[in-house]
């Protein structure tokens, strides 16, 4: 079975258990995306504030 399965109703039905399979995958990737976004924002913000306080060091890091 190839990628064409994506366009069949049976694939999405998952043998009648589509609700369970898709809610598991949906939840998993939604939460992981939120985690990634949160981590990225937290780090970017802290590093931005640090750079504002300490411009010389930030410049050295960018060059090094």
């Amino acid at each position: 079975m190839g990628i064409g399965a994506l366009f069949t109703a049976e694939f999405w039905a998952m043998g009648g258990h589509g609700f369970f399979v898709w809610s598991a995958y949906g939840f998993c990737f939604a939460v992981l995306a939120a985690l990634a976004l949160g981590a990225w924002r937290m780090t970017a913000r802290a590093e931005r504030e640090l750079a504002a306080l300490d411009p010389e060091r930030a410049a050295r890091r960018r060059n090094g």
Partner: peptide, 19 residues
């Protein structure tokens, strides 16, 4: 990846507090 990113953030936060 998440760990490396968050670690950098925690590191920066500590430096911020210290400064």
């Amino acid at each position: 990846w998440l760990f490396a990113v968050r670690l950098a953030g925690e590191f920066a936060k500590v430096r911020l507090r210290a400064i």
